[in-house]
Design a protein around this nucleic acid. Sequence first.
DNA 1: GTCTATATCGCGATAGAC
DNA 2: GTCTATCGCGATATAGAC
Lengths: 194, 194
Amino acid sequence: MSTRDRILDSALALFNERGTAAVSTNHIAAAIEISPGNLYYYFGNKQEIISALFERLFTAWDETFQLPADRAPKLADFEAMIAGNYRLIWEYRFAYREMAALLRNDPALNARYLEVRRDGYQGFSELIEAFDRAGVLVRPQSKDELRALTELCWIVSELWPVNLELSGRDLDAEGINEGVSLMRHLFRPYLVGG
Amino acid sequence: MSTRDRILDSALALFNERGTAAVSTNHIAAAIEISPGNLYYYFGNKQEIISALFERLFTAWDETFQLPADRAPKLADFEAMIAGNYRLIWEYRFAYREMAALLRNDPALNARYLEVRRDGYQGFSELIEAFDRAGVLVRPQSKDELRALTELCWIVSELWPVNLELSGRDLDAEGINEGVSLMRHLFRPYLVGG
DNA sequence: GTCTATATCGCGATAGAC
DNA sequence: GTCTATCGCGATATAGAC
């Protein structure tokens, strides 16, 4: 593995364990037994390491939210996406624990995040609209209701892990299932027989 | 105002503006024109200041979530509570931006938060159960559905502000209204004529 | 590309006068 | 209760050898 990638892996592990504030560039370098000077050959400062990790997260999101190209999307596909998203958030949990603060401190990163988020939300909306058109959602519902449902789904898919951690639990397999189940409850009133 | 309170107000303003990591005890002292030494007369370290601010937040929560004692609770009371909660979260926004990270770094604070949260969730559940018993919630619904509804309401009331900020907006009056409206959408399928 | 050595800075914290 | 003065530490970052 390249030194650059080893630095990023080291930083990710330490950030997840102790938080970005408590981890210095020296710690990151020491953990993979390279010199502090060598680390600075690859990254100008700690913030650049954080940004690079966010970029890895964004790329992984792109892959997670791919729909099957050969057939119409089903609710089960959606649930699989959400579960995949939760696994990703767990992998980059430091980012979610400090997200709002990290973005505030780095306008460039914030702009990039907003871009990624906008596209993500767009895809998310279209997916739910596709379910609606396909007749998966059947209860009497207005545009307004559909928009609220989308917003609520988004919040659960993005912030359920934080909520779980705030309640004192880890995002393990059981936690992931509960999050998906909660999402199901959100849809339930709008499904056939719900 | 007491020096202790002035320190806390100063810290709150600076934390909200720059985040806890970027604010030192020196900054907090300088902002109210007292010496660094004087600050340490009141607080042993920065973490104690953070804990004291959380304690103020907990107290304010207690007051926000008081129900009218003289009559049965209505949905409008609930919505007023949620709006009050949002205003409080805005006042202590630094805490929510870094909540998970701050709690992880301070086991004592985490234990205290879990206690407060447990009690809060308990009151929250009982309120929704009271609505159910009073016939406000009418759709066919199981214990399981009621539990999910409670959990979802909690998540929206706690994490809507973070979600709003992550989308690039502030928790102003309009943002608060949107959060309350989202809560209404959550209840809607379970209301008469919903 | 990686190292050693080092400069600079500011934070957290304390001692002791008033 | 508040101040001044200061110590020690560790973090970021750079220079220059290999």
